[in-house]
Amino acid sequence: MSDKQVEMSIVEHLGELRRRIIYILAVLLLGLVIGLVCANPIYKYLISVDSAKDFQLHAFAFWDGIGMYMKIAMVVALVLTIPFTAYQVWAFVSPGLREIERKAALRYVPYVFILFLLGIAFGYYVVFPMALGFTTTITKNMGLTETYGISQYFNFMFTLVVPIALLFELPLIVMFLTKLRILNPRRLRKMRKVSYFALVFIAVVITPPDFISDFLVTIPLLLLYEFSVYLSSVVYRKQLAADEAIEARYKQAEDPE
Rank of each mutant, 00 (worst) to 15 (best):
R237D: 13
K190H: 10
S195L: 03
S48M: 11
G96K: 07
S232N: 10
D214T: 07
G31H: 06
P110G: 08
L115Q: 00
S48Y: 13
L223Q: 01
S94L: 06
R192L: 06
Y111H: 11
E169G: 04
T139P: 02
S233C: 03
R18W: 13
D210G: 06
S94P: 01
A245C: 12
C38A: 15
L160G: 06
L216N: 05
V126F: 08
M130Q: 15
I150F: 01
A131D: 13
G96I: 03
P95I: 01
A59P: 00
L32G: 02
F158H: 12
R19F: 11
V205G: 00
R181D: 15
R192G: 05
S232C: 05
V109L: 12
M70Y: 10
Y124D: 08
L240G: 07
Y250G: 10
I34A: 07
E146D: 09
D54R: 13
L46Q: 12
Y108D: 11
L57D: 09
A253F: 14
G15L: 09
F168Q: 08
A86M: 08
V235N: 02
L180Q: 15
N141Y: 09
L132H: 07
Q88V: 04
S232E: 08
A39C: 12
V234R: 10
E247Q: 13
F158Y: 14
L221N: 02
P41I: 01
A165V: 03
V229M: 06
L188N: 07
V204M: 09
F128V: 04
A242C: 07
L29V: 04
R249E: 15
Y236L: 05
L29A: 09
V126T: 02
